[in-house]
Structures are given as structure tokens and as C-alpha cells.
């Protein structure tokens, strides 16, 4: 991983359209401002990982018969 030292209010450019700015540093917390094109997703990594893990788990769907069974159970509960 590339490591760069920055001070408060200094920035890093990634390519020509993503800017990462150190907005504030207090104790062990850093406030970071991000300017990026709209089509670039920006997420806290722990949230990203959480949804990614859930998606991977959900991405192999069970067989149809089972889904039919569950669907029927659902209808009865409505």
C-alpha cells in the first residue's frame, strides 16, 4: 500500500477526478473529505464488507422447490 504523509487541509489526487482531503485531525480520529464523480461509490469499508459478505452468502439461491414451499408458507401467514 502506498503511504503518503499529509497535514490537515492537504489533499491527495487519485487520477484526475478523485480528491481525498484531510479536513480535520482530532486525537485518534481523522475527518476526510472526498470529491469523486457520482458514479464512484464511496463507503466506509466495514459497511462495504458487511454488505459484500451478505451478498456472497445470498448469491447461491436454493432450488425452486424449496422456494415454492417457503412462498406457500408465506402466503398462509399473510
Amino acid at each position: 500500500m502506498l503511504v503518503l504523509a499529509r497535514k490537515s487541509n492537504q489533499s491527495i489526487m487519485i487520477g484526475d477526478d478523485i480528491e481525498i482531503r484531510i479536513v480535520d485531525i482530532k486525537g485518534d480520529q481523522v475527518k476526510i473529505g472526498i470529491n469523486a464523480p457520482k458514479n464512484i461509490r464511496v463507503d466506509r469499508k466495514e459497511i462495504y464488507d458487511l454488505i459484500k459478505t451478505a451478498n456472497i452468502e445470498s448469491s447461491k439461491t436454493p432450488d425452486l422447490l424449496k422456494i415454492k414451499e417457503i412462498g406457500d408458507m408465506f402466503k398462509k401467514k399473510q
Binding site: L64, I67, K68, I70, G71, F74, K75
Partner: peptide, 9 residues
């Protein structure tokens, strides 16, 4: 859901 139009899924 094929053949199961009322399925919630």
C-alpha cells in the same frame, strides 16, 4: 417465479 405467480419472491 415460474408457475407460481403469487410467490412473494
Amino acid at each position: 417465479m415460474k408457475d407460481d405467480e403469487e410467490s412473494p419472491f
